[in-house]
Write a protein that binds this DNA or RNA. Structure first.
Lengths: 153, 153
DNA sequence: AATTTTTAAGTGTATATACACATATTATGA
DNA sequence: TCATAATATGTGTATATACACTTAAAAATT
């Protein structure tokens, strides 16, 4: 290997070992699969579960506000909600401001949430126990810091 | 709110505040956008960049092995590679074992990697500096622990 | 050697994600 | 008030992701 090629190879090692987005995405894939499996009996996907939770917490809210909360592109949210509407978990109604659409949980949506919560708790407990509470809280804090850091500007 | 509804509401708060997959996916979305923007001039998407890095490190390798390394579903990798082949970054050739396909970097692929590396370095430095080295390393370790934890079984 | 099992990869389908652009409605300013 | 700017949302397109199922080839078993 030439000196230049060696340099590039070393940089690649650095990427694999320390790249934030590489490791974060990898962990995201792994953990998503774990929670997807856990939530499957409820009929909710991870994304749908978290969206329902968010709507339950904030109450009926507009798409843009929900997207901002989820740190999700607005158009991504539109597509996700469309699917959830088709499945009957939510509906959207026009707001007072006629440009807005307000997201509302349906009864089936609330029921699915109720079914999913114990499944989530079990999965969550497994992860927390395996990682250790201290480590888990540490990671959570770091993830939140990362989000606000990138979201800030 | 009934007592039961209050209980569900409290659980939802718990999910928002502490759910591993919720916070991990949120951070993943945020950080992905940051790195996508940084890498854009190179013509590589984040996924493509990390895949090229992996192939550069491991040398030509099969799809299954690469998928395992990336903690990525094999069929996901197939689709990602198809795209990268169309764009000319890689090719695949049959292995000695005729069931296997071996992934090989092309010259344009290597060039794109070379262009992307300084862009990655800049983005990475920004994140590490903003989070602080100690915090960053801590997060990295925790992410890796999470991956091996979920991957183990 | 022939049959069965295992392994490597691809396809059909569904969901998740976001950028560029278009449309409709509200707010602002001349 | 009317024209313009700002805001909220939707659509077209491209990429990322994985499950269920299929196909082809190698390995194991009888």
């Amino acid at each position: 290997m030439s000196e230049k090629e060696q340099k590039i190879f070393d940089k690649c090692r650095q990427v694999a070992q320390s790249c934030a987005v590489f490791n974060l995405r990898k962990a995201s894939r792994a953990l998503t699969q774990f929670y997807e499996t856990a939530l499957r009996p409820s009929g909710l996907r991870v994304t749908q579960f978290t969206l329902i939770v968010a709507v339950r917490l904030f109450g009926s809210t507009t798409i843009s506000r929900l997207a901002d909360t989820m740190v999700m592109d607005r158009t991504t949210l539109t597509r996700n909600l469309k699917l959830m509407e088709k499945k009957g978990f939510i509906t959207t109604i026009p707001g007072e401001d006629r440009r807005e659409r307000v997201v509302v949980l349906t009864e089936p949506g609330k029921e699915s949430l109720e079914n999913a919560l114990p499944l989530w708790e079990k999965a969550q407990r497994e992860i927390v126990d395996a990682l250790g509470h201290r480590r888990f809280d540490e990671m959570l804090a770091n993830l939140m810091a990362t989000v606000s850091l990138v979201k800030a500007p």
